[in-house]
Design a protein around this nucleic acid. Structure first.
Lengths: 190, 190
DNA sequence: CTTCAGATTAGCACTTGGTCATAACACTTA
DNA sequence: TAAGTGTTATGACCAAGTGCTAATCTGAAG
């Protein structure tokens, strides 16, 4: 008896966690026990067979793929746009967006929300950020809902540039503001 | 004959793309043909059987999971840091980072790389971006390797602020530059 | 109309990676 | 010695296939 049963089952769990692709035969070889023993172990630990394991891993993947296509978690969800005038977006901060050490949201998420919004409000084939100035006024934390408002400055500039001002608030308190100088190809038409 | 063979095979591909969990029997029912016909179609289109499909979906998932844990694709990889002095990071731009419409990288990725680097070079328990000014000098495209250099300005400021300058280049040409005013709690020691 | 090719369907043996039940050991412990 | 736990073996069966051969259907061309 190499490893006692209890220990072996503990190892079994972490083994399959790392590599769910192993057949019972593989596992049996790994622990130098019979295939039947592995089956019994799986039964006790309620670990499903190879195919079922792969099924669940695959379905997780499917769910994740759909989620990342929406990409809301990165940019914030744009909820209202009046082209060349103003726009609004919501971004829910989760633990994925914050520094572990202090629980404060990483700046680039706020920037991403604001910048995406500035691009969206212009809706040009080629709207690019040329220059911008940012103020991170107040730390944002997981659980906060950040509402960003973009306003297009109506002054006409030489060359093809436009300025978009974005202000982001949490519970009506400004946490971030930015001025985005955007380059565009098309004149503002409508 | 409901749908001609060619058409059916086209549909088969997109059907399994949406839902790889269908057995031949399911598919046969969906197209009202025999199971054998489905097998022949799969053979011609080189579509593997259910179990193999799930295997590959699952392994994709595994790869993605590992990848996202590294998170290099978001921040760029920090390759050299001299604390409170300077730091360097590399960020490989892929098709995931660009606008579909024009193939140009979204600004917030460049910002994220620079901002993360500015935080890393200070390595403070609480280093936060307070203010920053950015210049997007030249569009960046998929395939470009962006190298960002952060330099800490050695002037001492009142209160606990420090300025970090970041310049990002692609093939030795500046594509982005930013000035980051960072707030910190600890004095620069050493 | 016949004939012929391509598409479809069917049947059977075999494969993988299992489940389930049942039985036979081995080893310790009361 | 008997009981109990852990391990191994055996055989029947299942799902979802592959591979191969053979039969049938169908539409168009000669």
């Amino acid at each position: 008896m190499k490893t006692p049963k209890k220990e072996r089952q503990r190892l079994l769990i972490s083994l399959l966690d790392e590599d769910p692709f192993l057949t019972d035969e593989d596992i049996a070889a790994h622990f130098s026990v019979s295939v039947q023993t592995v089956r019994l172990d799986r039964l006790e630990c309620r670990i499903p067979e190879l195919r079922e394991r792969l099924k669940s891993v695959a379905s997780q993947h499917m769910q994740k793929t759909v989620k990342s296509l929406q990409a809301e978690e990165i940019f914030g969800e744009i909820i209202d746009v009046e082209l060349d005038d103003k726009a609004l977006s919501i971004f829910d901060v989760t633990s994925d967006h914050v520094f572990m050490r202090n629980g404060i949201a990483r700046g680039h998420h706020l920037f991403a929300q604001a910048n995406s919004l500035a691009v969206a409000v212009l809706d040009d084939d080629l709207a690019l950020t040329v220059r911008s100035t940012l103020h991170f006024a107040k730390p944002v934390r997981a659980g906060d809902r950040v509402i960003a408002r973009a306003v297009v400055r109506q002054e006409t500039l030489k060359n093809k540039s436009t300025v978009v001002d974005v202000i982001s608030k949490v519970e009506n308190e400004t946490v971030f503001s930015g001025e985005f100088l955007m380059y565009r190809t098309t004149k503002k038409g409508r």
